[in-house]
């Protein structure tokens, strides 16, 4: 991608970049800094690893009612809608499963007993959410991992668009969004990383507008008795989805939509392609 200025930084445990299609490096830096500030703001606010984050406050509320700010409320509303839309497959309370499922490429499979102990702590329907009041039962946890990065991408784009109309591409750890066509009405070129984790690109996508995300287990999986367990877990059963593709890449009007769709496609297991076809979204599935 010649002719674009690239601003890079690291946030949300991922490499992030902002490509600005202009000849003015100062403008690129300025816009890049806007995106970086937004990414870091969202990370600080919603990271479950920070003691002072909203998520930590929610997760340590021990069943006490809690009032949340409007941004958190909007994200919870969003999570609520996704939960309903997906029939319970997309669940922001499923993060506790990570206590026993460690996708480090090893063969450490938890026992059914361990899983059964955790299942009562999972289920958005157990949470009482009436904007702006949240009651999270003790022991349960909320995790915006499934939408935080995508939200940051869309959010950063909005912030940049308020400042400038130059074409930009925002890529936070593989979740990306473009502002529209590049100069001279060219499309942006995006590469999908191969599922084998070699870093060698496997295909190129042309993107004119909207967002693009990839869900998959390129690096995060478990191998046990020859079965490859993807890191996509079914919150209702506590087990990884069977026959999930290695990766699903989806293009949608926004990064958030793409993110949810690629996750939902993974959750369909062997019906991923069928699901994507029914939704008639542009998608690339690697098995």
């Amino acid at each position: 991608m010649a002719d674009t200025q690239v601003y890079t930084f690291s946030a949300m445990a991922s490499p992030c970049e902002v490509r600005v299609d202009c000849d003015d490096p100062m403008l690129a830096i300025q816009l890049g800094q806007i995106a970086e500030a937004e990414a870091k703001r969202i990370e600080a606010k919603f990271s479950r690893y920070r003691d002072d984050s909203v998520i930590t406050r929610i997760n340590s509320s021990a069943g006490q009612p809690l009032e949340v700010d409007s941004e958190t409320a909007a994200l919870l509303d969003y999570a609520d809608s996704c939960y309903q839309l997906s029939g319970g497959l997309f669940d922001v309370t499923s993060g506790v499963l990570r206590r026993i499922w460690k996708f480090d490429g090893s063969d450490n499979i938890p026992t059914q007993h361990q899983i059964d102990e955790l299942l009562p702590l999972i289920g958005w329907s157990r949470v009482s959410w009436k904007n702006p009041q949240l009651i999270l039962p003790a022991g349960m946890e909320i995790d915006f991992g499934g939408l935080g990065k995508e939200y940051a991408v869309d959010s950063a784009l909005l912030k940049i668009k308020q400042q400038s109309s130059v074409p930009v591409l925002i890529n936070f750890g593989g979740d990306l969004r473009v502002s529209g066509l590049r100069r001279n009405n060219q499309r942006w070129l995006v590469a999908i990383e191969a599922a084998d984790g070699t870093g060698i690109t496997s295909s190129r996508i042309e993107l004119a507008s909207g967002g693009l995300t990839t869900s998959g287990d390129a690096r995060r999986f478990l191998l046990n008795n020859g079965v490859r367990y993807s890191h996509i877990l079914d919150p209702r059963k506590g087990w990884p989805i069977k026959h999930a593709p290695h990766s699903v890449t989806v293009a949608a009007p926004t990064c958030m939509q793409a993110g949810i769709l690629s996750t939902l496609a993974m959750l369909q297991g062997k019906k991923a392609e069928q699901f994507l076809q029914r939704e008639s979204v542009r998608s690339w599935v690697i098995r």
């Binding site: 839309l85 959010s155 909005l158 958030m256 949810i260 769709l261």
Partner: peptide, 21 residues
């Protein structure tokens, strides 16, 4: 119906950014 999730997500997303931005 076909494309229902994408469409619904669009609205939910629109609502989200309306509320936050």
């Amino acid at each position: 119906k076909n494309g229902q999730v994408l469409k619904s997500l669009g609205l939910v997303t629109a609502n989200l950014f309306m509320a936050t931005h």
